[in-house]
């Protein structure tokens, strides 16, 4: 690990000021990703600005949603009674990630900005365009079971590893930022970038911008939302495929139709993947197995398999259909009560 300075920020404004003043400064959340990457010398900050003491609350918003401070731990979000009741997919997504120890350390801000777990990104002896622009990509012809089938480019096929982010993608969350030019907001689904020709640019954040909070809009149908993660072992492993979903039915029509739906995928894409194509096929259509299959196929039509991950296309298809079916069953039950 390279030597660095350390500063504990007392408020967000001061954190940004410090970051502006020092070249090579990075914000430090729980450190569960950054410290690891510093040890591997993949990250080499000259200064760490500790932001874990900032924005540690979860508050109700006037709109009827929740404002989650960037410094709240993953464990505290998952355990919050309001999140468990109103946004259960978010609790479930977080709880399926990492371990209890890591969730107690990791923060919301850090979870959003965690880097890929691609082994070639981690290995400084390997070629990786994300780590070293122009170096090439060893994953393309290498071990790519965990890599992306959606949103990839010729320069990068690394997946975004977060579970929490898949739930946030489905929830249409908003990200609150503070930078040298002041505050602004981004739709969560606009935060992460697909790699294109610039895989080293992972988000739309501007230099020195600090994440201060994540806002969940009110979303009544999220009461029946869920998150399912499929992986190589039952716990403490990253997703091969994960699906965040919720469905609202319209039973007033002659055929029971899908009034509204949110669907997002993890483990298969270069960013937390909102399944816009599938949603477009589902909305307003009869809640039948055929509709679900057509939706899954529409989303995966552009999927491009690598040498070691073609199985993910069929897996993603099956998990999407199974999860949507289950949400429809749950919505029917919900409608009766």
């Amino acid at each position: 690990m390279r030597a660095f300075d350390y500063h504990q920020a007392v408020d967000s404004g001061q954190a940004v000021e410090q970051a502006v003043r020092r070249d090579g400064a990075k914000y430090l959340g729980g450190g569960t990703n950054l410290v690891d990457l510093m040890r591997e010398t993949v990250e080499r900050p000259e200064m760490l600005i500790d932001v874990t003491a900032l924005s540690r609350d979860i508050d109700e918003t006037d709109a009827g949603g929740l404002m989650i401070g960037a410094g709240v731990t993953n464990a505290a979000v998952a355990g919050d009674a309001r999140v468990r009741l109103r946004y259960p997919l978010l609790s479930r997504a977080i709880l399926t990630g990492a371990s209890a120890q890591i969730r107690n350390m990791a923060t919301v801000g850090g979870n959003l900005l965690q880097r890929t777990r691609c082994a070639y990104f981690y290995d400084v002896a390997a070629s990786c365009n994300k780590r070293e622009p122009g170096a090439g990509c060893d994953a393309r012809e290498g071990f790519n079971r965990y890599h992306a089938i959606l949103g990839a480019s010729s320069s990068c096929v690394a997946t975004h590893p977060s579970d929490m982010c898949v739930a946030l993608a489905a929830l249409d969350a908003r990200v609150h930022l503070l930078g040298p030019e002041g505050e602004r907001e981004l739709a969560f689904n606009d935060l992460h970038r697909e790699p294109g020709e610039r895989p080293e640019l992972e988000t739309e954040l501007r230099p020195e911008e600090l994440i201060t909070a994540v806002e969940l809009p009110p979303l009544p149908m999220a009461v029946r939302s869920e998150y399912r993660k499929v992986r190589d072992r039952a716990s403490y492993a990253f997703a091969l495929v994960s699906v965040a979903s919720m469905v609202e039915l319209d039973s007033n029509t002659e055929d029971e139709t899908i009034a509204d739906v949110r669907l997002a995928l993890g483990g298969v894409a270069t960013k937390p993947w909102r399944a816009w194509q599938a949603e477009a096929v589902l909305r307003g259509q009869p809640a039948t197995e055929e509709t679900l299959a057509a939706a899954a196929d529409a989303e995966l039509a552009v999927a491009e398999p690598l040498s070691g991950n073609a199985f993910k296309i069929e897996l993603a298809r099956r998990v999407m259909i199974a999860e949507l079916s289950q949400r429809i069953v749950d919505a029917r039950k919900g409608g009766e009560s």
Partner: peptide
């Protein structure tokens, strides 16, 4: 030494964490 095994688990203010991923200064 990378958060993957739990051998370094300690309690920080009563909550379990991995000591290998925590900086002493923090």
């Amino acid at each position: 030494n990378q958060g993957a095994c739990g051998a370094c688990t300690v309690l920080l203010d009563g909550q379990r964490i991995n000591a290998c991923l925590a900086l002493a200064v923090q």
